[in-house]
């Protein structure tokens, strides 16, 4: 039963990583920006969810408000920070993004206080029995939420005009423009959607832990960089696989390697090894 629980716990964590990292991979795929501040938007989403829910009593309204506000913030970050840097070497945007992320974390600490906030209502404490295994309702909500979000993204990418425009712009921006695709608009929508995912991940984690803290973005921020590299940079499917795999490996690592290595370092060992052996990423197609 230990293995079932470890895998399940890994999948719950992995699905959280996946929802955060998908947004990062969308941004990297389009603009080659390693957007660390994404995790700052994720924290913002979690705070807006908790505060709005406590004010209005409706979790749905909280999540909706978080997605909308954070989506707009994401577009603002692109407009004010990244757009003027697109012509500069890629590490410039990365370092600026780290600076922005630190500013965001510190601002949350100042504005919302260092101790974190919780929902007024009780935690989703009950467990759901699925035959011989049981799963906490909050964990189940995380898994289901992630599946709904990622399916939604897949539909958006395959079935809508935006999806076509996005894929065309990633493949060949010049060609896309000559076919009348507004590539500037694609970038803004891209940041909006990626940030909506960050907010959704924040909401889900807020429900999962019933706690939001100023520093809750620290672990996902840098770890999701590792995930998108492992997933083959800009590959949505690869990112998903890498996130879930990492979740499960971490769950096992905590049990079997916890005496030698901190859990949060596991992702970076993989990152370094993979970058040395296969710089194009674990799940990248060809080279």
């Amino acid at each position: 039963m230990l293995h079932v629980e470890l895998v399940l716990q890994g999948l719950v964590n992995g699905s959280m990583y996946a929802v955060v990292a998908i947004g990062l991979t969308l941004i990297y795929g389009l603009l080659r920006i390693l957007h660390v501040a994404h995790a700052g938007l994720y924290t913002l989403g979690a705070y807006i969810t908790v505060l709005t829910t406590n004010a209005t009593g409706s979790l749905a309204l909280g999540i909706l408000a978080a997605m909308l506000v954070v989506g707009l913030c994401g577009m603002l970050v692109y407009r004010l920070l990244y757009e003027p840097m697109l012509e500069r070497p890629p590490y410039v945007a990365l370092i600026a993004s780290i600076g922005l992320f630190i500013c965001m974390e510190e601002s949350y600490r100042i504005v919302f206080g260092p101790y974190g906030s919780s929902f007024d209502m009780p935690r989703l404490g009950e467990r759901i029995a699925l035959g011989p295994i049981s799963i906490a309702a909050a964990d189940a909500a995380m898994l289901v939420g992630a599946i709904v979000l990622l399916t939604g993204l897949a539909m958006l990418m395959r079935r809508t005009r935006f999806g076509v425009a996005w894929r065309a712009t990633v493949t060949d921006p010049a060609m896309a423009r000559s076919f009348g695709i507004d590539t500037i608009k694609v970038r803004y929508v891209n940041f909006f959607i990626a940030s909506v995912f960050a907010a959704a991940a924040g909401s889900l984690v807020a429900v999962l832990n019933n706690l939001v803290e100023p520093t809750m973005g620290s672990v996902p921020s840098y770890k999701s960089l590792a995930i998108i590299v492992l997933g083959g940079l800009g590959q949505v499917g690869g990112t998903l696989a890498a996130a879930l795999l990492l979740g499960v490996i971490e769950a096992y690592g905590t049990i079997y390697a916890g005496a030698y290595l901190d859990r949060d370092a596991i992702a970076f060992i993989f990152l370094i090894v993979v970058l040395m052996i296969r710089p194009q990423g674990l799940f990248a197609r060809g080279s």
């Binding site: 390693l34 970076f268 060992i269």
Partner: peptide
């Protein structure tokens, strides 16, 4: 020698995290 620019940046960042994660448990 293997990775450059932003990838070197995140590799060295990874080295930093692995260092702390390793020392914490020794």
């Amino acid at each position: 020698l293997r990775v450059r620019e932003d990838f070197l940046a995140i590799t060295t960042m990874g080295v930093g995290f692995v260092f702390v994660g390793f020392v914490r448990k020794q």
